[in-house]
Computed example of a mutant assay.
Amino acid sequence: MIDYIIEPEQALILIWNRGETSPRDTIRQLDAMRKDPDYSHDFDTITDITDLKTDFSRQDIVKMAQYSETLPIPKGAKVTRNAIVAPADRTFGTSRMYEQLTNGFVPFKVGVFRDWASALTWIGKNPDALDDLLKAS
């Protein structure tokens, strides 16, 4: 299951990928999010997979990377950042594989982090300013 919050004032999208979620489900839910009226390609993203139960295989990661390569890029869109929060070794490793497969080939930069503070800092947001938002989420 994927939940998300779009914060237009912060130019930020927060995504939580939890439980048993297949790559196909993930792609379907991300496509639906992109249809949200508040969505903008120009927003940075933090994807938290702390509670993801599914173990994505190498083939799954390649499939996700290939999907990311096909995303439409609006003319004049800026290169955004997608920070992945993956504290567990198993998800950190597969996320790093995704990072390596996509950087330079997709319309955003990918970074993988063990905690929210590092992810927020990397995308240029003050972790303290978003603390209340994260608690509410």
Rank of each mutant, 00 (worst) to 15 (best):
I2P: 05
D3A: 04
Y4H: 11
I6L: 05
E9F: 11
Q10N: 10
A11C: 12
L12D: 07
N17G: 13
R18W: 11
G19Y: 13
E20A: 13
R24T: 10
T26Q: 09
D31K: 05
A32I: 05
K35Y: 08
K35H: 11
Y39Q: 03
Y39M: 11
S40L: 08
D42I: 14
F43E: 02
D44L: 00
T47L: 08
T47P: 06
T47W: 03
T50W: 02
D51V: 09
F56K: 13
R58M: 09
Q59I: 01
V62Y: 09
Q66T: 10
P74N: 12
G76H: 09
A77N: 10
A77L: 13
K78I: 15
K78V: 15
R81L: 07
N82G: 04
A83Y: 12
A86T: 06
A86M: 08
A86F: 09
R90M: 02
T91R: 15
T91G: 03
F92N: 07
T102A: 03
N103D: 08
N103F: 07
G104F: 04
F105N: 10
V106Y: 00
V106C: 01
F108Y: 15
K109Y: 01
V110P: 00
F113K: 10
R114F: 14
D115L: 02
D115I: 13
A117E: 01
L120G: 10
L120Q: 13
W122V: 04
I123Q: 10
K125M: 06
P127Q: 02
D128S: 14
A129G: 05
D132P: 00
L133T: 07
L134D: 07
L134M: 13
K135W: 12
K135A: 14
